[in-house]
Simulated scan of single mutants.
Amino acid sequence: MTSVGVLGATGAVGQRFIQLLDGHPEFELSVLTASPESAGKRYREAAKWRLDTPIPEDVAEVEVRDTDPDEIPDDTDLLFSALPSSVGERVEPALCEAGFVVSSNSSNDRAADDVPLVIPEVNADHLDLIDVQRDERGWDGALVKNPNCSTITMVPTLAALRQFGLERVHVSTLQAVSGAGYSGVTSMEIIDNAVPHIGGEEAKMETESRKLLGEFADSEVSWHDASVSASCNRIPTLDGHLENVFVETREEPTPEEVAEAFEDAPTLDLPSAPNQLVHVFEEPDRPQPRLDRMLGGGMAVAAGGIQETDTGIQYNCLAHNTIRGAAGASLLNGELLASEGWV
């Protein structure tokens, strides 16, 4: 078994990591870290558990450590990071310098030239940037990122459409409140309302998608040259980001060809990978967050409403934002790292 730890284990994404790692066939959770205020407490005392399954019994009594390289045992093979970016930008490089491999959901360093930003079914070859990273930074460890929750919902569908020549992408998101964390959006702000602004989200979608779709060659990633524009909105659903996507391509695929491309999206033989990456619905009112966010155990993408427009193709897509869009994405990256010998 591979010994793993969770950084920032008491927060919403950290809790989701613990839920997903419970009973994992390859990873054994041995280390939990959090803020100094939580360090020294048993996990059940440090974390206000908010998920719909109980805290795993073997985790509840684990003592939480401070998030510090000196506090993490040297024999920990892989660390999953749910740290806030303000902490991650300081702690993650120190951990990598100390020899740890970190699979991170934190937003810091996603655009860095030598940091792999990875969706395993889309751009697994970008992991080869680790060699560049180690050479340039002198690290024995490694830092790998997954994209943000709205980007990871859309990009698997865009990757399927690259064969038609992606030129322009316009997306409007309807994002669940869990994407902001438990205390991120107050009830008075979101009930009976929609908020047409999520700070920094649009820029993340517009840049991260192009890096993910880019090609790795000659020790660098050449970002895809498609233009991407995004409008991001918060709505009062708990989980599941729904996105309305408009795509312009050099070729003119029919809706049937687009649906076939989605259904042919590659899958991987990894424990957390869904059997089918993109599920296509023919019903015009699907996908919907409440009905479809748990497809593939929350790791699949749902698509529907595919139709032609005057400029190209329009469709809707959906994914579970704290599973596929956060902890599950980092977990899948960790499985890929292990399968390819980086761990």
Rank of each mutant, 00 (worst) to 15 (best):
Q19Y: 11
A327K: 03
I313P: 05
G88Q: 07
D66W: 14
T249W: 02
S107C: 11
T53Y: 09
A329V: 02
F246H: 13
V132L: 14
L95Q: 00
A326H: 11
T322E: 08
G23P: 01
I198D: 10
I306C: 01
P287A: 03
A338N: 10
L29K: 06
F262H: 01
S222E: 15
V169C: 04
I235G: 09
E97A: 11
I190W: 01
A124C: 01
S227H: 11
H126Q: 14
E260Y: 03
L291F: 09
L242H: 04
V91H: 06
V301L: 00
R16G: 10
S35I: 13
F246V: 11
P147N: 05
E260T: 02
Q307G: 12
L166Q: 10
V6M: 00
P271A: 01
R286K: 06
P287F: 06
F17D: 05
A261G: 04
G179Y: 12
I18K: 04
M1R: 11
F164S: 03
D22P: 12
T67I: 13
V177G: 05
V177P: 05
D75Q: 08
I18V: 12
R286S: 04
R42C: 04
D66R: 14
E89M: 15
L166I: 11
M299R: 03
Q276L: 12
D52S: 08
D22H: 14
E248K: 12
G334D: 02
V102D: 11
E308T: 13
V278Q: 04
T207V: 15
E201F: 13
E282P: 04
G297V: 01
G240R: 01
S222L: 15
T157W: 01
T249G: 00
V245T: 02
L277S: 02
G181Y: 00
E61V: 07
P36K: 12
R110L: 15
T311G: 15
A111F: 13
V13K: 07
A46G: 06
E121N: 10
S330G: 01
M1Q: 12
S106G: 07
N108R: 11
Q163H: 08
T237F: 10
L270M: 03
A203W: 14
T254N: 00
F80H: 07
A160Q: 00
D131I: 09
A47D: 02
V177W: 02
D135H: 12
P255D: 02
V301Y: 00
E206G: 05
D310T: 13
D285G: 03
A338W: 08
D66C: 15
K211F: 11
A303L: 01
A98Y: 04
D285W: 07
P69F: 00
D135F: 12
V132G: 10
L242S: 05
P36L: 13
W342P: 03
T53L: 12
E243W: 04
I190N: 02
E89P: 14
E340I: 02
R50F: 08
Q175Y: 14
D292A: 06
A265N: 06
K41C: 11
Q19E: 15
R134T: 08
G141Y: 03
D292N: 03
E61H: 05
V245I: 00
R90C: 09
L277H: 02
F80Q: 08
D135V: 11
V171E: 09
F262W: 03
A111Q: 13
N105S: 14
Q276C: 07
T322F: 06
E136S: 13
G200S: 14
P236C: 04
V155Y: 01
T267G: 07
V13D: 07
Y182D: 13
V13M: 12
E260D: 08
